[in-house]
Nucleic acid binder design. Structure first.
Length: 674
DNA sequence: AGGAAGGTAAACATGA
DNA sequence: TTCATGTTTACCTTCC
């Protein structure tokens, strides 16, 4: 049975059922890998093209390459001089894989690293050395290729070139290469000393191979792109990547270059559901600023070609400039290759990060103490007990009121339990059925408002009961009514968790709708819609009064709704004000929905309800549904509910309660009390 | 230990 | 017939 449900989930999810088809690809990471492969292949193609499409004469080419080599060497020496060892020696533990830097930090951090934080980690000055190493490697290879090309060209073309001249040049070039090799080795040793590289004997000749995950710091790329230019430029300036705008096509993938334009490096590559878009995202990111009359390499009146910045008045001029200055030549090709390498590195890193994200999310689906084997993160077994025990205490509002859940990296943010909430957050090893918000203080609307993005992206089961979720879904709508399918859609829209196991939770939703009296089915012209009877909902579950269960019980059984309502407020005053004051409460969606609700549910008990007689729908919450409300009518209970006159002097918000009070009232329901 | 609440599964009915 | 919707029951787990 479970298997069937799971398979159904798998089938139904991509089918777009209930309008969630757009989410179907969220967990499919294969595309990224495929694209990555494509990128690699393209890179090789480009390399080949560079070799075969050279238009410069060998002498020019050699000169050009030498200039580049010198420039790179200069930068390298600068890096050496400025000291790659940056502030934290602890960084020396960031070994071979620079990716491990965010890994360790992220894992140790109580909160997930934001892309900005990752950026800070990935692009500190010490990483410049890595980049220089890559640059050296790149240009070293290129020099070799060009040298080989030169030789081939000369042999085939049979150009009558003085052997001596060529020999001298080759000699000088080879010396240069030798120098570069030495620099490479020196650089490698330097990196090794600092722990940036774990040197392996067979890789000593190629730093790049030792840095497969090295985070290419694009801030250094301009140095490469500008390598042949401004030879007299002070080295310091070359490090500053001054004025470089990397927001063009090439740099959008690495747009975390210049500080003012700092943007999360991964955010551009991560869909809201957390899936990397890899290459497509590069296109997207480059095209996002593309307008019908623009060009991805043209923006803000200047050429966005890496290291160019040539001012162009209009697009036409730019096109002309592009065709003249950035035609297909070795230089452009080399720049492309550099850029591709950057992209490749980022893709590798992205793949690593995505993998880590999956592992983290999978981990979060298991309780830490859960000895069960690692379950399939992307397709949890529906109905399994382990699945039910997912409850990461995401309901716990973060004390700082921040929305910790990420907006870009698909919420690896672990909803870590705020220390201050103590056991309430744990709710005792909480299986999902003990939704924290149901029994404790976190209001669902507040919680959802605060962690909306998190639940939207992270495959974490929301710590709310189905009933509270359904209620929230209904209350969020202006009309306070939803069809079943709309409720489904709300679930899938709001919670990544509910984008799978559709058969399970949909059944649960229907079950809850039918089971709980607080959900009223209203026959509409179009069909049936579901509304919420707040009174029933609040009556449904008693507030968990701290320290006095008996009191609660007495209240439930003996007091009228008004008294209960008063107790709600008392409890609220004690426990929930901080939460209610949280920014989440000001969420427009929830707030807008709260006001009328308060009017409805709070006012109802005090109003002379029986005006409609006992036959009237007792749980007719929304006034607009004065028409036929049917189903699930419990006249007896309704009569009970209608015992007017809150004896305990319940504040009657329906009379003249300020909106704030109404909001508070709305948040009063038992589930939101502690 | 037992009840309450909630989650899950399933059977069944109904209507489009 | 199939599917969505709705109802109901049963069983389970967890908490109190």
């Amino acid at each position: 049975m479970m298997v069937e449900s799971a398979s159904e989930t798998i089938r139904s999810a991509p089918s777009g059922q209930n309008g969630v088809g757009s989410l179907s690809g969220q967990t499919d990471g294969s595309s990224g890998g495929a694209k990555g492969t494509t990128a690699s292949g393209t890179g090789r193609d480009m390399t080949t093209g560079a070799d075969s499409n050279g238009e410069m004469s060998p002498a020019e080419l050699l000169h050009f390459q030498q200039q580049q080599a010198l420039q790179v060497a200069r930068q390298f020496l600068l890096q050496q001089a400025s000291g790659l060892s940056s502030p934290g020696n602890n960084d020396s533990k960031q070994s071979a894989s620079a990716v491990q830097v965010p890994v360790s930090v992220a894992m140790m951090s109580p909160q997930m690293l934001t892309p900005q934080q990752m950026q800070q980690i990935l692009s500190p000055p010490q990483l410049a050395g890595v980049v220089v190493g890559i640059a050296l490697q790149e240009y070293y290879k290129k020099q070799q290729e060009q040298l080989h090309l030169q030789l081939l060209t000369q042999q085939q073309a049979g150009k009558p070139q003085p052997k001596e001249a060529l020999g001298n040049k080759q000699l000088a070039f080879q010396q240069q290469l030798l120098q570069m090799q030495q620099l490479q080795q020196q650089h490698l040793l330097n990196l090794q000393r600092q722990g940036l590289v774990s040197l392996q004997p067979n890789q000593a000749s190629g730093p790049l191979q030792t840095l497969p995950q090295a985070a290419v710091c694009p801030t250094d790329l301009p140095q490469l792109w500008k390598g042949e230019g401004a030879p007299g430029q002070p080295a310091e300036d070359s490090v500053k990547q001054e004025g470089l705008d990397l927001t063009g096509t090439a740099a959008t993938a690495t747009s975390f270059a210049a500080p003012p334009k700092v943007s999360p490096p991964l955010s551009h590559h991560t869909l809201p559901n957390g899936q990397p878009t890899v290459l497509t995202s590069r296109r997207d990111s480059s095209s996002h600023e593309e307008t019908p009359g623009s060009h991805p390499l043209y923006g803000h009146g200047e050429c966005k070609w890496p290291g160019c910045e040539t001012l162009c008045e209009d697009l036409g001029q730019f096109i002309k400039h592009l065709n003249t200055e950035h035609a297909l030549d070795d230089r452009s090709t080399a720049q492309c290759r550099v850029q591709m390498q950057v992209v490749q590195q980022l893709e590798i890193q992205l793949a690593k990060e995505s993998e880590r994200l999956q592992a983290m999310m999978a981990h979060l689906h298991m309780r830490p103490s859960e000895p069960k084997p690692f379950s399939q993160p992307l397709n949890p077994v529906p109905g399994s007990s382990s699945f039910s025990k997912v409850t990461v205490s995401a309901a716990d509002s973060f004390p700082d009121g921040l929305v910790h859940p990420p907006t870009s990296a698909a919420a690896p943010v672990t909803p870590l339990r705020p220390p201050g909430l103590g056991s309430a957050s744990l709710h005792g090893g909480g299986p999902a059925r003990r939704r924290s918000s149901d029994k404790f203080c976190s209001p669902i609307s507040s919680e959802l408002a605060q962690n909306h993005e998190f639940y939207k992206n992270a495959d974490v089961r929301p710590p709310f009961t189905y009933a509270s979720l359904i209620r929230q879904a209904i209350l969020e709508t202006p009309d306070r009514q939803l069809t079943l399918n709309e409720i489904y859609n709300w679930f899938t829209r709001m919670f990544a968790y509910f984008r799978r196991n559709t058969a399970t939770w949909k059944n649960a939703v229907r079950h809850n709708l039918s089971l709980h009296k607080c959900f009223v089915r209203v026959e509409n012209v179009k069909g049936a819609v579901w509304t919420v009877d707040e009174r029933e909902y609040q009556k449904r579950r008693p507030p968990k009064m701290t320290g006095s269960p008996t009191l609660v019980k007495n209240m439930i059984s003996g007091l009228s709704y008004g008294a209960l309502n008063a107790s709600y407020q008392a409890a609220l005053a004690e426990s929930s004000f901080p939460l209610l004051n949280s920014p989440g409460m000001l969420n427009p969606g929830s707030a807008s929905s709260l006001l009328p609700l308060s009017h409805d549910d709070v006012g109802a008990p005090v109003e002379p309800l029986p005006s409609n007689g006992s036959s009237s729908p007792p749980r007719l919450s929304p006034p607009q549904y004065s028409h036929q409300v049917q189903v699930k009518e419990e006249p007896a209970e309704a009569e009970e509910d209608r015992q007017p006159g809150p004896p305990l002097g319940t504040p009657n918000p329906s009379a003249s309660g300020p909106p704030e009070d109404r909001d508070l009232e709305e948040e009063l329901p038992g589930e939101e009390l502690s």
